[in-house]
Design a protein around this nucleic acid. Structure first.
Lengths: 194, 194
DNA sequence: TTAATCTCCAACTGTTTGGTTGCTTTTGCG
DNA sequence: CGCAAAAGCAACCAAACAGTTGGAGATTAA
């Protein structure tokens, strides 16, 4: 078999994503990541430097996917509501990603690297939001993007918490999806009104 | 000065609350808690058994305060919206508590002890919700209570994440408070309609 | 005063963990 | 073939950490 460094890298990233999503940064174990990837531990250090570098690579991938995948077009508060619902579905298909972002918000909120990543990733979204809500200032648009994101991420990342008590999951999911859209529309209307 | 074991206990709980809210369970350091409390490390083990027991004591206190403090009365979806807004304000005054609950949701979701605590704490809320929305089943009421709680907690716990970009904090806070109320009302209406 | 309890201090233990090092095997390429 | 890079293997290190122990001072109740 040929050397495929890209594949090795990818296996590590996949295993790391799972590990970080499950246990967070502090709880994640480098040895476990290497073992689950079926790759030697040294590869982590030669590819990503250290545990921190690995986390940032994982987070960067996740943020990029998040901000590049879901379109934000159309016009008016309804478009914002649609976007929020689409984002809700997006996270529904990637259970680990929401948790990863929750961890990051809790554990590494102050990290300048994360802030840079976020700012870069958000840029396009904010401009799209300005086009969708022409009356809103850039500040308002940025705020709205982050509000909607936080809402969706927080809800998905923490939702397993009540799997314990909620019996009818699909129905709950639909309810929440609708309420996210309602909340997003409400915020968009408030912003549009000034 | 007389021995005041209750005060010692309380100092430990206060320091532990801060530590766990800041770093989560895995990131919290027992030594740091003892030092910040100005109390010897042994006291933690004699009072709470181990790190786990300490966390559970802290969490129990927080949940109890949460579920006992905020009233849920009146009738109809508007009452649910008011309750959600009150809860939003409640967490605004206790920045650490929301983070603590977020940590718990991420790190210890499966813990049976946490589930028991939660179930006990939620009980009263769920019955109150049944009274507020007479048409809803108990299952729906429980689901709604948890949905609203998750929404508010998630938002508060992760909100610092965007302090980086949001300039006008008070306005943002008001916007979110309103949108939480809107979302809660929307969910309550959907549940009430069946 | 005495016994029991509460507390502090400080050193210690055993384990876990991020990270490193030395050596060998595998693979691609000239 | 022979060399260099990619990967594995396994032991290792130093630091951090949860939890313990033993000794000594303070406080209260009997």
């Amino acid at each position: 078999m040929a050397w495929d460094t890209e594949a090795t890298r990818h296996k590590l990233l996949a295993a790391a994503t799972e590990e970080f999503a499950a246990h967070g940064y502090a709880g994640a174990r480098v040895d476990r990541i290497a073992a689950n990837a079926g790759v030697n531990k040294q590869r982590i250090y030669s590819y990503f430097g250290d545990k921190d570098g690995l986390f940032e690579a994982v987070l960067g991938d996740g943020l990029a996917e998040l901000f590049e995948t879901i379109p934000l077009d159309g016009e008016g508060p309804d478009a914002v509501a649609d976007h929020a619902a689409a984002m809700f579905d997006f996270f529904g298909e990637r259970p680990g990603l929401a948790r990863l972002l929750c961890w990051e918000g809790l554990e590494r909120a102050g990290s300048p690297a994360a802030a840079a990543l976020r700012a870069r990733g958000c840029g396009g979204k904010i401009e799209a939001m300005c086009r969708v809500l022409p009356g809103a200032s850039r500040q308002d648009a940025a705020d709205l993007v982050l509000s909607v994101t936080t809402l969706v991420v927080g809800w998905h990342g923490l939702s397993q918490l009540d799997v314990l008590m909620a019996g009818d999951l699909p129905r709950t999911h639909a309810l929440r999806r609708a309420s996210v859209a309602v909340a997003a529309r409400g915020m968009a209307e408030a912003v549009a009104r000034g």
